[in-house]
């Protein structure tokens, strides 16, 4: 096994362990910090799979911005008591069973031969290539995502506004003549 293979399995094991700990963690802060680990490992895996720009994006956006946002929300909504019934076994039984069935089917599919057995050759796509593909063939997707970000901004502002004083008196904006 080449050094790339060793790196892949090490990073993959780290991702699985960190994600398991995050998913089963009782404390929200611990879950978020474990998830930062998992996303950092994902970024390195992206680099290993030949996507340096996406590796940087993954660390900046996922491990940086999104997880900091989660941390802010966790800090703002301080829980008085530990999460009730967060890790009870019965709740995990059905999702675990369905996941196992899907995983068994996927494993059978992957190891039944065909195109999935092809070894990946190391390669590196330059950010220039990604930018060119993004803005020539995927320009419509870029436009849609930019519009989506604008809508998300407006929606977050609308949802996060302070409750109005008039709302308590039973007056809603629709009542205006």
């Amino acid at each position: 096994m080449s050094v790339y293979g060793v790196l892949f399995y090490a990073l993959g094991g780290l991702m699985l362990a960190a994600t398991t700990l995050a998913v089963t963690s009782r404390s929200l802060v611990h879950a978020v910090v474990y998830l930062v680990n998992a996303f950092f490992a994902t970024g390195l895996l992206f680099y290993l799979l030949g996507a340096p720009l996406l590796a940087a994006f993954e660390i900046i956006i996922y491990a940086g911005a999104i997880m900091v946002l989660f941390l802010f929300i966790v800090m703002l909504t301080r829980q008085d008591k530990p999460l009730a019934g967060g890790v009870s076994l019965m709740r995990w039984l059905l999702p675990g069973l369905t996941s196992l069935v899907s995983l068994a089917a996927g494993t059978a599919l992957v190891f039944s031969g065909g195109a999935t057995g092809v070894p990946l050759a190391p390669a590196m796509a330059s950010p220039r290539d990604l930018g060119r593909a993004l803005f020539s063939r995927w320009w419509l997707g870029v436009e849609i995502v930019s519009f989506l970000l604008l809508v998300a901004l407006v929606g977050a502002l609308y949802l996060g506004r302070a409750p109005r004083e008039g709302a308590a008196a039973g007056k809603s904006p629709g009542d205006a003549p």
């Binding site: 080449s2 790339y4 293979g5 892949f8 399995y9 993959g12 991702m15 699985l16 994600t19 290993l48 799979l49 899907s102 995983l103 996927g106 494993t107 992957v110 190891f111 195109a115 999935t116 057995g117 092809v118 070894p119 990946l120 050759a121 190391p122």
Partner: peptide, 15 residues
């Protein structure tokens, strides 16, 4: 080579 393509798919499926 890095790893077979299927192993990456399995990791993604597990996650």
């Amino acid at each position: 080579m890095i790893v077979p393509f299927g192993h990456v798919l399995l990791l993604a499926a597990l996650l």
